[in-house]
Amino acid sequence: MESSAIFAALKTKFGEAAIDLNEDGPEAFAMVPSELIPDVCQHLRDAPEFDCDLFSCLTGVDLKGLKGETDDGFEVIYNIESTGKAHCVSLRTRVAREKPEIPSVSSIWETADWHERESFDLLGIVFTGHPNLVRILCADDWIGYPLRKDYEFPTEYHGIVCEFEGNEDGTWGGHPG
């Protein structure tokens, strides 16, 4: 199926207003409100004409400070594919910075489990209904969410001194020269 046909079918199912299409950029995507995400995903996986069985990728993006962007929340991108029908779908949703909560899709695709944990770990996006939402890459007692644009680099971790240029005050020791 062409992505335009998929999006048209989604629109008829979930309503004209709910799904906002964008086909100008390098990748066509549908903007979906965060509370609708599990329903849309379930439909994409189960409806025989879509049959999206492979969850390729989940990306979280921090929008704070992005040029031409009034929103300072997070955007989450779902890249989904059907191995049988060989088509891809890209969904996006946005959440507010103060309350970054999205319903989890880990019960629909197993793959989403680790991806959501990773987004939680690095960006602090909370996926409600996730069975085990703990840090996956960073150490368990890590402080802060590193991929947020306002992340402050650590100066010390368990007694080990860290010196980073990334810090505002330029405390990076680094290599001499």
Partner: peptide
């Protein structure tokens, strides 16, 4: 400005990059 997901077949499997440009 724009963003896209592109994947290639690496020796281990599907290697994808999602790059957002500002």
């Amino acid at each position: 400005k724009g963003a896209a997901y592109t994947a290639v077949e690496n020796s281990k499997g599907e290697l994808g990059f999602y790059i957002a440009s500002d």
